[in-house]
Computed example of a mutant assay.
Amino acid sequence: MATNFRVDGVHWQAGSELHITVCYVGEVSDKDVDRLRSSLGRISIAPFRVAVKGMGVFDSEGGAVHLWAGLQPRAELEALHTLVKRQVEALGINIAHFRYQPHITLARLASSAAGSVDDFLESNRDLCTRSFEVSEIGLFRSIPGKFKSIYHCLDTFPLSGTCR
């Protein structure tokens, strides 16, 4: 998936920063990061396949803020989301309660991007890729910047086992 499209007011994520968001946790202490590492390593779910299908934006009060690519099928990602969410909540860590939308964040949008993003979404609404395997989950730290977030992978955990 290319992220070198020219769209005014769009700040693309670097290819190395693209990842599937399974569960957004928010700010946590270093102690909680260590607890998350231990907990996420115990998740048991078999690897599965997904494909990019469609695009959209996440809105805030000020308008669209993030451009994303959707993922299908949703069932396995939703099961993984539920497992991760339960592990995080069992640690007593509060998480944001958004309706889960399986996605890959592609870009952050400036307020001036509205019209050009609408055209971009329309011209890419049928975006679809070949399926690819999801074989591990990662624990990421997100550092918000003026134009985009910077993501650092803190640890990865291979998926193995069966769906429960």
Score class of each variant (00 low, 15 high):
residue 63 G to A: 02
residue 130 R to M: 08
residue 35 R to W: 04
residue 34 D to M: 08
residue 127 L to E: 02
residue 111 S to G: 13
residue 54 G to F: 11
residue 56 G to F: 06
residue 136 E to H: 14
residue 87 Q to T: 08
residue 83 L to Y: 07
residue 104 I to M: 13
residue 79 A to N: 14
residue 36 L to G: 04
residue 59 D to R: 10
residue 56 G to D: 08
residue 42 R to I: 03
residue 114 A to L: 01
residue 122 E to W: 05
residue 39 S to W: 00
residue 26 G to K: 01
residue 52 V to N: 04
residue 32 D to I: 08
residue 31 K to P: 03
residue 84 V to M: 05
residue 145 G to F: 09
residue 96 A to C: 01
residue 128 C to Y: 03
residue 60 S to H: 07
residue 136 E to Y: 15
residue 121 L to T: 10
residue 84 V to A: 14
residue 102 P to N: 11
residue 139 L to A: 09
residue 80 L to C: 07
residue 131 S to E: 15
residue 114 A to E: 13
residue 69 A to D: 03
residue 143 I to Y: 12
residue 92 G to F: 11
residue 58 F to P: 02
residue 120 F to L: 07
residue 133 E to Q: 09
residue 68 W to H: 10
residue 121 L to D: 05
residue 94 N to P: 05
residue 123 S to K: 15
residue 73 P to I: 14
residue 56 G to L: 12
residue 110 A to P: 04
residue 74 R to S: 14
residue 135 S to L: 02
residue 38 S to L: 13
residue 82 T to V: 11
residue 61 E to S: 09
residue 124 N to Y: 13
residue 123 S to G: 03
residue 62 G to R: 08
residue 95 I to K: 04
residue 65 V to P: 01
residue 73 P to R: 02
residue 128 C to K: 11
residue 83 L to A: 10
residue 78 E to H: 12
residue 85 K to E: 13
residue 29 S to L: 07
residue 94 N to F: 00
residue 95 I to A: 04
residue 147 F to Y: 09
residue 118 D to G: 08
residue 87 Q to F: 00
residue 50 V to R: 06
residue 120 F to Y: 09
residue 72 Q to F: 01
residue 91 L to A: 10
residue 26 G to Q: 04
residue 87 Q to K: 14
residue 111 S to M: 05
residue 149 S to Y: 01
residue 77 L to H: 01
residue 101 Q to T: 15
residue 111 S to P: 12
residue 93 I to Q: 02
residue 98 F to S: 11
residue 112 S to F: 00
residue 44 S to D: 11
residue 88 V to P: 04
residue 123 S to I: 13
residue 139 L to H: 02
residue 80 L to I: 12
residue 64 A to V: 08
residue 80 L to N: 06
residue 90 A to K: 13
residue 141 R to C: 04
residue 124 N to S: 11
residue 31 K to C: 01
residue 117 V to G: 11
residue 143 I to E: 10
residue 62 G to Y: 01
residue 44 S to N: 12
residue 85 K to Y: 03
residue 107 A to S: 10
residue 132 F to I: 07
residue 72 Q to N: 03
residue 45 I to T: 15
residue 147 F to I: 04
residue 80 L to Q: 09
residue 57 V to E: 04
residue 140 F to M: 11
residue 81 H to D: 06
residue 50 V to G: 09
residue 97 H to M: 03
residue 91 L to M: 05
residue 93 I to H: 06
residue 88 V to H: 02
residue 30 D to Q: 06
residue 142 S to V: 01
residue 43 I to S: 15
residue 67 L to I: 10
residue 50 V to S: 05
residue 133 E to D: 05
residue 97 H to Q: 15
residue 125 R to I: 10
residue 127 L to S: 03
residue 107 A to M: 12
residue 100 Y to H: 15
residue 86 R to V: 05
residue 41 G to N: 04
residue 147 F to E: 10
residue 91 L to Y: 01
residue 53 K to E: 14
residue 73 P to A: 14
residue 49 R to K: 09
residue 81 H to I: 08
residue 144 P to E: 00
